[in-house]
């Protein structure tokens, strides 16, 4: 589904990603962990089409197409969804209008008619229930005045509306209380179909108790320095990153 090959990315001339290779097959869940500032969000942003980061080398192929050639909206319509680490507040733009526009753009892309107002509202209701979102939030401006946790739940709600093939969730679990974490994780699991994939960026093993990954990667200083099964997350939880950093630095020296 997604193949990243030796991806190198700079921001303002500073090397942030230093050669990432990663393959996500249909149906797989990959977790990406790693210390602050290692480049996880940059990777997610590049996959979603954010322009501030410059790709200097490497390729990204998604469903057989060159992903890096597509504008962000095209990627979304082709099934990529980014759950933002810091969702943006957009005063004056209502959630309803935002989602209606987005859903209908997706439908147009698939050659479908726009949804009628009543069908759309029904869809909103169903998805809100699915991800257990307070119904009042959907009547407000996009993320405006939402609490940290509400913003994260709103990301999952949008994901439920757009039914992506590949969901990239950037620390969707940060700032959630235990109940909210369960709601978000359940939401992700309910939306996931057997052939859809996810990349879950997180600092905490506890999310991975709910969303069980097939593979866990550690990103450190712009590189994937370790890849293993889900037990790696437990190990990181116990031991932190120091041992990995030491391993990497030792290899670099030798």
């Amino acid at each position: 589904m997604l193949a990243i090959e030796n991806l190198k990315v700079e921001i303002d001339g500073k090397k942030i990603l230093k050669g990432i290779s990663l393959e996500v097959k249909a149906g797989e869940i990959h977790a990406i962990m790693g210390p602050n500032g290692s480049g996880k969000s940059t990777l997610a942003a590049v996959l979603a089409g954010r322009e501030f980061a410059m790709v200097t080398e490497g390729t990204v192929t998604y469903m057989g197409k060159n992903l890096l050639d597509m504008p962000p909206e095209e990627r979304s319509k082709e099934g990529i969804f980014l759950g933002f680490q810091y969702p943006i507040e957009i005063p004056g733009v209502s959630m309803v209008n935002f989602m209606k526009t987005a859903v209908n753009e997706h439908r147009k892309h698939k050659g479908l008619e726009p949804l009628s107002a009543s069908d759309f509202l029904k869809m909103m209701r169903d998805k809100k229930e699915l991800v257990e979102i307070d119904s009042k939030l959907a009547n407000r401006s996009v993320n405006e005045g939402f609490s940290g946790g509400e913003k994260k739940k709103n990301e999952i709600f949008q994901m439920a509306m757009l039914e992506p093939e590949l969901a990239i969730l950037d620390e969707t679990d940060s700032g959630l209380d235990i109940d909210a974490l369960r709601i978000v994780a359940n939401g992700v699991n309910r939306i996931k179909r057997p052939d859809t994939s996810a990349i879950v960026i997180t600092h905490y093993q506890r999310l991975l108790d709910f969303i069980v990954p097939d593979v866990v990667h550690v990103l450190y200083d712009g590189r994937i320095v370790k890849t293993a099964g889900k037990e790696l997350a437990h190990e990181l939880e116990k031991k932190g990153y120091d041992w990995i950093k030491k391993e990497v630095d030792k290899n670099n020296l030798s």
């Binding site: 909206e73 957009i90 005063p91 987005a102 753009e105």
Partner: peptide, 27 residues
């Protein structure tokens, strides 16, 4: 950032710009 957020949900740039300006004016 807001522009990218809207685009990342499948809304084209022209439409996203319109939505932002409209939201700004709606205030």
């Amino acid at each position: 950032n807001a522009l990218f957020y809207l685009q990342s949900r499948g809304i084209n740039k022209r439409e996203a710009r319109l939505m932002l300006m409209f939201g700004f004016a709606h205030d």
